[in-house]
Amino acid sequence: MAEVSGGKVARLAVLFERYHRPLFRYFVSMNGNREQAEDLVQEVFFRMLRYRTSYDPAQSFTAWMYQIARNAGVDQVRKRGTAQVVDIDTFVDRRAELVSASPGPEESASRVQDLALLRRAMDQLPEDKREILVLSRFQGMKHEDIAEVLGCEVGTVKVRVYRAIRALEQIYFTLEKEKAS
């Protein structure tokens, strides 16, 4: 990014190839809408170009990028209203394709159900908890970088990640009980 900031804007292609997928997954996890997630990925890279001179090479690039991503996400929600949630049937269908290589049909089916439940639990998590879990678990970000993105202390991040996974656990088991009853 330092090179892009210095005027070699073509080097943004390297960053795009490296980060567009994680960014896309972040947005899909947050708003459940693939089309909007793709728009947002585009918006993030555009903002990187526009604000490239504000990038400080001493700062973590990942943290800077997710700060931009969060702002872009907030702006889009403001523009469009509330966020949408992924259609569960589409989700289950997609999962079924992806686990088709697993050993037995029963295990496969059960895993699909578990994953669908887990995904539903994720979607039902309050947005702040879902976000911190996505950043820490799916984006593989260090606590230090998350702290920079969210503007809080590293210790606070650790506590919030823990609370988020506990909240996910509660929702997951509630959904599981509902399914069983």
């Binding site: 896309f24 992806l98 887990l118």
Partner: peptide
């Protein structure tokens, strides 16, 4: 549950 999150398939952009 934490490990189970690993099994959630990754979305791919078009």
């Amino acid at each position: 549950l934490w490990q189970g999150l690993d099994l959630l398939p990754l979305e791919e952009p078009s």
